[in-house]
């Protein structure tokens, strides 16, 4: 028996995940998503043990290539890789070679020459991760590209919902706030609909993308109507530069009409749960009382983040060259 089999999270490799990269939720089938969620459930167990280390990625190199600063996503991927035994290197490119004029492709080719097995990429431009994936030989995970996709966030949100509600099928999920600029919203819309949830987008029209109804979501510009009968209220972060008159007039007005406080939460179902991808702007899109309250899943989302990333790494590891092989 190969040592790696003994240390996989799934005792027998019974799952099938037919993708070399994870570039987005789009393109994943419902079974693909369910496979990842089941692996992630197991990873939660692994992470809750004293001995958290597995050997799935032993001898593998994982590079976290972040063109945009990130604390939680980067550390979550780092921890996930380390728990599976990979050698993890973090590269914050925002402050290094890109400033010196190196292009995205140059950076990718340079890293590729170092023979990594997995590259986790975040970039401020939509589509940048896809471009990079076409140029390198290893597996690529999208950790967020512009306002396009953030697949591991959607997976961790789904895992959190499933573990708390027991299902996703048939739930009504209200995604509220700055949908226009949110990659989290796009990935969630695709994933939650694939698993049978009803998805709504709620926010001022200036923050709702044109034509989003064509994705099959319902849109609301009024929180009272948008939250009615919702099982899950998912708040999105409003970037500071969009608060003062460009997309919304002011923080005060935004909080008054769209910030989630106890009163607005009371418009949703009595057992509705609150989520936020973080980092939160307290007093802008969410009130502290709600963020820290009994119905908040926000901290649990962080824990599920590590588990989901372990699951994704394990699933992609299937497609890495075998031990002892050469590339």
């Amino acid at each position: 028996m190969l040592y790696s089999d003994a240390f996989r999270m799934s005792e027998h490799q019974t799952f099938l995940f037919p993708h070399r990269h994870l570039l987005g939720i789009e393109g994943l089938s419902r079974p693909d998503i369910e496979t990842l969620l089941e692996l992630a459930d197991k990873a939660v167990e692994v992470s809750r043990q004293v001995e958290k280390k597995r050997a799935t990625l032993r001898g593998r190199t994982q590079i976290n290539l972040f063109f945009e600063p990130s604390t939680r996503t980067q550390s979550s991927f780092e921890l996930a890789g380390k728990r599976l035994g990979a050698d993890v290197m973090n590269m914050s490119v925002a402050s290094s070679s890109v400033k010196k004029g190196e292009t995205l492709i140059d950076t990718a080719m340079t890293l590729n020459a170092m023979r990594p097995d997995i590259i986790v990429v975040r970039h401020h431009a939509a589509g940048a991760v896809h471009l990079l994936a076409r140029k390198v030989d290893c597996s690529v995970i999208n950790a967020g590209d512009g306002a396009h996709e953030h697949p591991t966030q959607a997976l961790l949100d789904a895992l959190t919902i499933r573990r708390n509600k027991g299902r996703i099928e048939g739930l009504t999920v209200a995604i509220c706030g700055d949908v226009l600029h949110s990659r989290v919203a796009r990935s969630n819309i695709i994933l939650l609909q694939a698993l049978g949830a009803r998805v709504r987008c709620v926010g001022p029209s200036t923050l709702l993308p044109e034509g989003i109804e064509q994705f099959g979501v319902e849109t609301f510009t009024n929180m009272r109507k948008g939250l009615q009968d919702a099982d899950i209220v998912m708040m999105l972060r409003l970037q500071r530069e969009r608060m003062n008159g460009s997309f919304v007039p002011s923080v005060k007005e935004y909080f008054r009409f769209y910030g989630l406080d106890a009163e607005k939460l009371s418009w949703a179902k009595p057992d509705a749960l609150v989520m936020h991808p973080g980092p939160m702007n307290r007093g802008v899109e969410i009130d502290s009382g709600v963020a820290d309250g009994a119905r908040s899943l926000i901290r649990e989302q962080v824990e599920m983040g590590v588990a989901v990333r372990m699951a994704v790494l394990e699933a992609l590891a299937q497609h890495l060259p075998n031990d002892g092989g050469h590339r």
């Binding site: 003062n244 008159g245 460009s246 919304v248 007039p249 002011s250 005060k252 007005e253 008054r256 009409f257």
Partner: peptide, 9 residues
């Protein structure tokens, strides 16, 4: 002519 006022409030 640059930034929106608090139309709702």
């Amino acid at each position: 002519g640059r930034e929106l006022t608090e139309i709702g409030l």
